[in-house]
Design a protein around this nucleic acid. Structure first.
Lengths: 110, 110
DNA sequence: AAGTATTATCGTAATATTACGATATAATAA
DNA sequence: TTATTATATCGTAATATTACGATAATACTT
């Protein structure tokens, strides 16, 4: 017991949940905002700006990479992180889809 | 160690993260979708439709209530759950804000 | 080749989440 | 009053997340 029963839910719901999970930590939100503001960042830039250790930042970057929302391009000893435009748009669509489905069908409550 | 350093991040980033957290589990996404589709549900309706025990559903409902995204109106022995329109709109704005801030300032990457 | 810089990974500890059964609570029904 | 119904909460176990220091890996510099 304890493990999420992902299999029991639809692929779509899992997709929404997984994008949401990527955004579900303030450090990851802050990282994404940095990437948006500066277009590209190396890991060190982020370590300098956020109050977390290098290893923790690296871990968050990995999670964001797994979610697909960011890419990491190796450039010598540095790694250049950027928003993945395509996946970013997909995430936006998927989440916006959930939000607007309410507007469409909202009615009287109890 | 182990606890999220929420204090070290901005209120806004925490707000985004907390809404995202509410959506970060397929069961909660499925619950929200049910509430959207049927406008209102009692706990038992959800228990009947989702592959989780009554206590687990109740726990997820509690989390959604804490996030503010849903309300729970007691009606006799039953509790009628609904989307909280105001908070739902706030969540949408906050998340859409993040997504569109990219579109505005996107540029060349590495 | 040796040193430096940058990032990833390992090991580990603390905390949080997910899930269930059992039980408590509260309102209605018999 | 005593069931019945519906939901919440408690206790607990499994798993996941968050965070850090230490160390490894990799590419550049001297």
């Amino acid at each position: 017991m304890g493990a999420t029963k992902s299999d029991e839910f639809s692929v779509k719901d899992n997709k929404i949940a997984s994008y949401a999970k990527a955004l579900a930590h303030p450090a990851r939100v802050a990282i994404l905002k940095m990437l948006i503001r500066r277009q590209a960042c190396i890991c060190g830039d982020i370590v300098d700006e956020l109050p977390l250790s290098q290893s923790t930042i690296s871990q968050h970057l990995k999670e964001l990479k797994v979610s697909g929302l960011i890419t990491g391009d190796v450039e010598g000893t540095k790694v250049c992180y950027c928003i993945d435009e395509k996946e970013w748009n997909t995430a936006q669509e998927v989440l916006t889809g959930l939000f607007t489905s309410y507007e469409v069908s909202k009615g009287t409550c109890c």
